[in-house]
Design a protein around this nucleic acid. Structure first.
Lengths: 227, 227
DNA sequence: ACAAAAGTGTTGAGAGTACACCCATGC
DNA sequence: GCATGGGTGTACTCTCAACACTTTTGT
């Protein structure tokens, strides 16, 4: 898959930073490239945008193809297009980030990836192209997103406890939060609804399970919702 | 300038929402298209991204070519790429917005524009493609930007009075601000520095001129800096 | 002296922050 | 009964928002 240096227009790809909470860390799915350039180097999952396919659709397709992931939170991040970012020629990429609940993980080695694995976003391996920069940018955006809105649910299963949600925020923001203040803010925002079920099984008192209110305003425009 | 429907990859353009304060309104520069489709329809200035040209560079080039504007505040907005947005075929566009001081205006009819004019962003004429949507999105982003950061200077000349700056914010945010609160916030943010010059000429007491501190942190990340 | 715009502090309300104990369950 | 995590309320601080008068200039 190469193309001429005399192409009249840059080619277009999507790259996706897939965030997931695993082992108490914020991790991202990386694929090991099976082709040049950067063979055997880790990279963000992604691929070319097909003709008559929107970048959003391309991102969703790559999510499904490379990781078997469907129906997750997906948001456009930024478009990176420096001519020298791909040694094969000028390739502009629309970067996305996705939030997936810890349960939805099905690793699949796709066509041009020989391996796929989760990596801590704090200490990723060397990455192909400008993907290290994209990853760093995505982490920053995710933090902003959680500071200003109530979108952390998407990193958890449908039903979750408030402690699990708080832990999710603490991992992403990399800072300890106050339990009572966290719960008050959350209650005031009105984006959660409690179920009548409890999570037992572990030690201690069982915790009430909550779920996201589908009819809630997704953009809770409070000032810094969770510091 | 047409291309085959069998092109393997979407084509790439940039479109720019150029904001300027004129006649007490927030206005944007629109060009009247001289070619099909949407001949004689107003559109955002923009054009194709050349091979080995970054979208940022393409946006700067279009700013220079279509409006003679250089060295202004320019920020990427979002990438729009629905296959049906251009009847000629699949064209993905990276949208930008620019803030220009009222002085820097040199209208130039470019190659495929037969006319160019400023229009109030609140009541634009019918626009080609999805440009009405892009414009609306840009206005929203500009408002967020001014609410959370101190970037309103870029709509004013190098030296300006605090009243002029407040008026700029009031026009963009479409809401009246309190003079003392506005000035206090501004002083606390530390992004301005006073000159020793005054603006006289008009009626009333002359106003001290300020300028933007080049060494200031451009992203004043306060909570809602200017409500 | 008066019209017109510039400039300047204080107070009350609300949000943010810090903080400690009782509760329900499993072993 | 004890260890473990779940769940709850209050006091203080600080930021935000509302508000009116004096100053400087031109006519």
């Amino acid at each position: 898959m190469s193309f001429s240096i005399t192409d009249p227009s840059p080619r277009l790809t999507v790259d996706i930073v897939i965030f997931c909470l695993r082992k108490g860390e914020l991790q991202t799915l990386l694929v090991k490239r099976g082709i040049e350039p950067f063979r055997d180097c880790w990279a963000l999952p992604g691929g070319f945008v097909l003709y008559n396919e929107s970048p959003d659709a391309a991102a969703q397709r790559e999510l499904a193809e490379e990781a078997g992931i469907m129906h997750v939170y997906l948001e456009q991040l930024y478009t990176f297009g420096a001519p020298e970012r791909d040694p094969r020629g000028h390739v502009v990429t629309v970067a996305y980030y996705a939030l997936i609940p810890s349960a939805d993980i099905y690793l699949q080695a796709g066509s041009d990836a020989i391996d796929a694995a989760w990596h801590n976003v704090q200490a990723p391996p060397p990455l192909a192209f400008d993907h290290a920069h994209i990853l760093q940018y995505a982490v920053q955006r995710l933090r902003y997103k959680l500071e200003y809105t109530a979108a952390g649910f998407h990193l958890l299963p449908d039903e979750f406890t408030l402690s699990e949600l708080q832990t999710a925020y603490e991992i992403v923001l990399n800072e300890k939060l106050d339990k009572r203040n966290f719960r008050r803010k959350l209650a005031e925002s009105g984006v959660l609804v409690s179920t009548d079920r409890y999570r037992g099984g572990s030690e201690g008192r069982p915790a009430l399970l909550y779920r996201y209110r589908e009819d809630a305003d997704p953009e809770v425009k409070a000032r810094r919702l969770f510091p």
